[in-house]
């Protein structure tokens, strides 16, 4: 259908905000950040080009190395445990259990809460003087120790515990939708063949749920790179710099340490990581869409 001139004008006017946001915010701001990472900007941005020197500094920066190290540990453990627990929960609920709605609400409610709330609750639970360790000792386990949050080498695992608690319900919801989409005929056929249930899950259902796993994994992974609130509220990066994460490194160097060049170099490194994770996924989705 041909569009009249006024309608075409209206349609374009409606798209102006999106276009503006796209050009100014997403493309413009990102480019500026990448450019600043190539300068020696300190408190204010300048245009003194220094090549990749900020990236060299970054690689020699202890705090950055710790941050990257932490986010890798956090990312691997958080994504694996959230996927595992979420999937097991979805399978468990799919066994036609009683009180399904209540059980689902229990597993999903943490996802409605903020990372700040999550971080503060778990900070309290993991507090060695009055938290879980104290409870275990008062139950007669005199030597029980659960002081991960105050020990530099284990603080990051506390973030994993809290993160998994918050996000597993999301995985469960995605997986349950996938499981409910599985054709009843498959189950009937498996029953006729006398296959045990776990074999059906392992060899038939899991391979069929590739899309659900990919969606959940990508959602969780993008959350990993953004991780900031949890580190701030739960440990504030501590003890010392033991639970620092890249997003916090960027924020601190932008607003407290007045080192814009280094901060934007760190941010650009984050961007490259995200592209490496998301690009194959988007490509895969696009390919799948074409084949349909």
């Amino acid at each position: 259908m041909r569009l009249s001139l006024t309608s075409r004008f209206s349609a374009i006017s409606a798209l102006l905000p999106a276009l503006l946001v796209m050009l100014v915010v997403y493309i413009g701001a990102t480019s500026w950040t990448v450019w600043m990472s190539l300068t020696n900007s300190r408190m204010l941005p300048n245009n003194n080009f220094v090549g990749l020197r900020q990236y060299e500094t970054l690689l020699g920066n202890d705090r950055w190395i710790t941050s990257v190290h932490n986010i890798v540990i956090y990312g691997v453990l958080f994504v694996s445990f959230a996927l595992l627990i979420g999937f097991l929960l979805a399978v468990a609920i799919d066994q036609r259990v009683r009180a399904e709605d209540t059980i689902r609400s229990i597993f999903l409610y943490p996802y409605s809460m903020s990372f700040v709330v999550t971080g503060l609750v778990w900070q309290w639970l993991l507090n060695p003087t009055l938290g879980i360790q104290h409870v275990l000792r008062s139950w007669g386990f005199e030597n029980a120790t659960f002081d991960w949050i105050v020990r530099p080498e284990t603080a990051i695992y506390c973030l994993v515990i809290a993160g998994v608690w918050q996000a597993s319900g999301l995985v469960m919801a995605i997986m349950l939708a996938g499981l409910r989409g599985v054709d009843e005929e498959i189950w009937k056929a498996a029953r006729v063949d006398g296959l045990p249930k776990w074999r059906v899950y392992m060899s038939i259902i899991i391979p069929m749920m590739g899309a659900s796993f990919a969606t959940a994994a990508v959602l969780l992974s993008t959350g990993v790179v953004r991780l900031y609130d949890l580190s701030v509220s739960m440990t504030n990066g501590g003890p010392g710099i033991a639970s620092e994460v890249p997003a916090k490194f960027v924020m601190d160097h932008l607003f407290e340490r007045a080192n814009i060049g280094l901060a934007t170099a760190a941010a650009t490194t984050m961007l490259i990581t995200v592209i490496a994770v998301v690009a194959p996924y988007l490509y895969w989705r696009a390919r799948k869409g074409e084949m349909r």
Partner: peptide, 22 residues
């Protein structure tokens, strides 16, 4: 435009924050 919007949704806030403040 739509495709681009879906891609940029994945970029972390740290990339935009400082330029937007300015």
């Amino acid at each position: 435009l739509f495709g681009a919007m879906m891609v940029v949704a994945f970029i972390p806030y740290q990339l935009f924050i400082y330029p937007l403040v300015r």
